[in-house]
Design a protein around this nucleic acid. Structure first.
Length: 278
DNA sequence: CCTACTGTTACGGC
DNA sequence: AGCCGTAACAGTAG
């Protein structure tokens, strides 16, 4: 289910456990999940390398190696990472396993197999993964009301569609766009060019605020992350509209509605989020 | 059996 | 060219 908060959660849990470890084995069960380079190049570049640290950019995860190369990973819809002892039962749909030098494995599982890996050698330009096309991070101080208005406010596409556009602000997906729009009280299908400067200012403040909130609510200890196989999203009880169509609005009590915006299921409150779209 | 699905990309039609 | 909607990817869940 990964959007930015979940990807950040994976990074925070996994990174301290793999930093400083070296890769002693690689089991590539589904070569097609390696988008670049081929299976052979991937293996050759990684065997024996030490992992220096991890990073996140939008919904992408990164791992940096001691030879200057880096692994890029996108979890897409159902991908997940788990650091497990060798005798811990393997998840179904485990497609890639990194054996580490401490008798543990970093396992990538992905039911729908949409997730992808890329490996970039030292100084190799990443023209493959799509990271270079991403917009700013939600926590970048450059994310201001003026920035949003400049990049989103000129067209009549739905404001929700704008929030989902990874080339403007990276990391917001279907769940958190609904949550953000509920918090600011804006109708998801409202044409972006109808929003006022104050709307953009409020969005600029709420976007990082809500994402931070959900990252914090997701916090989990490594042991518990392993026991729940990385699937326990502890922030879901704090979702106010996503998944709650037909229930009462937590602010005003009216019944939450479901519509489709840009082909995505969208939940909103008809009372709190004025239907400015007409 | 049928529908929907938290992400992204490709493609056809305007 | 931009914009929009849809299908595709593949599997599970309800």
């Amino acid at each position: 289910m990964p959007e930015l908060p979940e990807v950040e959660t994976v990074k925070r849990v996994i990174e301290p456990q793999i930093r400083g470890r070296s890769i002693t084995g690689l089991m590539i069960r589904r070569p097609e999940i390696i988008a670049h380079p081929g299976e052979g190049g991937f293996r050759k570049s990684l065997m024996g390398r030490t992992i220096c640290g991890m990073g996140r950019r939008g919904k992408f995860l990164m791992a940096f190696l001691d030879n200057g190369s880096r692994i890029i990973l996108h979890l897409r819809m159902t991908g997940g990472l788990l650091l497990a002892p060798l005798d811990f039962p393997e998840e179904k749909h485990t497609h890639l396993v990194f054996r580490l030098d401490n008798a543990k494995e970093l396992r990538f599982s992905d039911t729908r197999r949409f997730g992808r890996f890329w490996l970039l050698r030292k100084d190799e330009a990443d023209t493959y993964s799509g990271i270079s096309k991403l917009g700013i991070e939600p926590f970048d101080p450059a994310l201001t009301g003026a920035f949003l208005q400049e990049h989103m406010g000129k067209r009549k596409r739905a404001v929700k569609d704008c929030l989902l556009d990874q080339s403007i602000v990276a990391g917001i997906g279907n769940i958190y766009s609904d949550e953000i729009l509920f918090t600011v009280g804006i109708y998801p299908a409202c044409p972006a060019n109808r929003l006022a400067g104050k709307d953009w200012e409020r969005l600029a403040g709420i976007i990082p605020q809500r994402l931070s909130f959900f990252i914090e609510k997701n916090e989990i200890a490594p042991e518990e992350y392993l026991q729940t196989k990385g699937k326990d999203y502890r922030n879901t009880p704090f979702l106010q509209v996503y998944g709650h169509a037909g229930e009462s609005c937590p602010k005003c009590g009216r019944t939450l509605c479901r519509i489709v915006v840009s082909g995505r299921s969208s939940v909103y409150c008809p009372g709190c989020q004025g239907e400015t779209a007409g």
